[in-house]
Design a protein around this nucleic acid. Structure first.
Lengths: 337, 337
DNA sequence: TGGTAAACTGGAACCAGTTCCAGTATGCAG
DNA sequence: CTGCATACTGGAACTGGTTCCAGTTTACCA
């Protein structure tokens, strides 16, 4: 337990530096000396202190990730990508889960610091101007995933195009009354989520491009979750003139919409078309039509960008746009005649 | 960036100890001195180094968790429980994801050390005798969740009883040919998972207690996953005398069984009853009959036990058994006459 | 007004590594 | 046999906090 490098040095009859060199595989140690040191290490069951090492080196050997609601399926999938890219390296992964705005702000202030982590991946939460400033001056490489901010490298999809794609698909099927179920705008603003907001913008654009007037009664926003989406969809479906199709800003919310249809005895897709977003694991199982995005890859790619900056501050300030794909499955069809 | 406590002391015209006392809210500082120090801190934009602090205190301010396949829904839910219990404390959460046996062994050797974490929650992976020894002598509080080992505190359910409960339920419905789909026994042994193994034991016991001979052709084991379970279930359902009911060792695998039934055009529950285990989030959505266990609570409780040991080494070596509950939903029914 | 306890303050020592400079041994050429 | 480059080695200094002891000031009482 308590053996230190000095104990090893004494036991092996060598100097401190020599033990350190052995530990770090420096070639500047003769084989016989190395052997002696290794024996002493084994005898004392010595293992170097990570903390002391971090302290001396000024590195933490840690990659941090700030993730909102890290149990949402899409976030989990991104985390898995990060983790996969990390395996093999010697870095540990520290997860900062953000479920409140206070925690969000706290994380942005506290995490991006040399004495906390060597690199940082921020998922979904867009930093505000002052926070970008802070992130840039902290000499910790930061990469944003699923969001963006000028001056910081990021990996994301074109959510506006995604929202438009989903909506256009419904339009092409012949739908004219298309509802939307998405996140609470106040919540989006408080956390500064951009992706869900952009999907909504894409929905609106697609409709106006197709020459339709906005119908605010078809646009419902609520706290993220299956249950909430179910309630919102029920409201939509009980309107005097209910929509014949609903675009949900995430697959989780699309599941809530499907539940609402079930509640009201509406057949999907015969009486109601539903399309989601993300293509999470269960979407395929459920036969849910959706917009596929490379969740796992966004994590690996984000982490790769962080790692690439660890050596030297390379100018990796670009924005990488990953491809999206419309997945038509069993929840979309033309409206009833 | 680089201001140290000494810079602050110099700037404020006080001693090192005084600055440290201010930082740690010691009452032994006069208001005027404290004021002066706080001003110096603000002017220098000083913020104490976490690493140096950890080093001096011998604490890492970190709780580690070793989790196998941390993206499986049940594991995610437990992690969420851990995270929830951690919020509010100043500890950070480091996640060690285990997807290979090598990584498993490495984690058991490397993580439980004072210089790595202050406490450890191990999910699902049972330590072997030598590892238990190591965990006990490392002076880091360890709690096992979803598994157990003599000498270590743990939070888990009675998986044998759970397996028995699921099987008995099918027996009581009148089923006589009951299949099982579960994890690869080799994989279970390699990682030393206990819960899935015990569910299988419960299945076998229920059958033998009811006077049935074991039918090995009804027992299928494979790598964990929906797709693999689907293949195994297809094999079962294509037997000359196929089972009329299948118990799957997890909800994920139960979903695979449902897919297999769909593949073969079997109506559930009319032609095939299916029961799962865990009651993960989508189980309710799917109307899947299952054995509910408090996943979230297992995480919070596990973490609470770790935290309670952080003060002093209290003798929290007990095993806490959480309750399970049979959830009969829409995938179970009596067999066809 | 002197004495003493209580309140406050300063700074050396410590935590366990790494780094780097100076020093010693070795080998080889002149 | 000497000189010098090369290979190896030892240990002081350093990283930035905390802790604790000793010293100084202050407050209050007799």
């Amino acid at each position: 337990m308590g053996a230190t490098i000095r104990d090893v040095a004494r036991k092996a009859g060598v100097g401190l530096g020599t033990v350190s060199r052995v530990l770090n595989n420096s070639p500047l140690v003769s084989p016989s000396t190395r052997q002696r040191v290794l024996e002493a290490i084994a005898e004392l069951r010595y293992s170097p202190s990570q903390i002391a090492r971090s302290f001396a080196l000024g590195r933490t050997n840690t990659i941090a990730t700030i993730a909102p609601f890290f149990t949402r399926p899409s976030v989990v999938e991104r985390l898995r990508g990060i983790e996969a890219a990390l395996a093999g390296s010697t870095y540990n992964l520290v997860v900062f889960n953000v479920e409140t705005v206070a925690r969000r702000d706290h994380c942005f202030n506290d995490v991006p610091r040399r004495d906390r982590c060597d690199g940082l991946v921020v998922i979904s939460l867009a930093p505000r101007a002052a926070e970008v400033e802070f992130l840039l001056q902290a000499d910790v490489p930061v990469v944003l995933v699923d969001t963006f901010a000028t001056g910081l490298p990021s990996v994301l999809i074109d959510d506006i195009a995604g929202g438009r794609l989903a909506t256009q698909c419904l339009l092409e099927l012949g739908h004219r009354q298309i509802g939307f179920v998405g996140d609470s705008l106040a919540e989006l603003a408080a956390f500064n989520f951009t992706s869900s907001r952009d999907r909504f913008i894409g929905y609106q654009r697609a409709l106006s491009e197709a020459g339709f007037m906005p119908r605010p009664e078809y646009e419902r926003h609520g706290i993220h979750g299956r249950y909430e989406a179910r309630m919102l969809a029920r409201e939509l479906l009980q309107l005097p003139e209910p929509p014949t199709a609903i675009f949900a800003a995430s697959d989780t919310q699309a599941m809530g919409v499907l539940e609402a249809a079930r509640d009201l005895g509406l057949a999907v897709p015969a009486q109601l078309s539903v399309i989601g977003f993300d293509d999470i694991d269960v979407a395929e199982y459920l036969g849910l039509s959706t917009i596929h995005q490379p969740l796992f890859e966004s994590g690996t790619r984000g982490l790769e960008l962080v790692l690439s900056q660890l050596g030297g501050p390379s100018p990796a300030t670009g924005i990488e746009i990953l491809p999206i794909e419309l997945k038509l499955r069993g929840t979309t069809a033309p409206p009833m005649a």
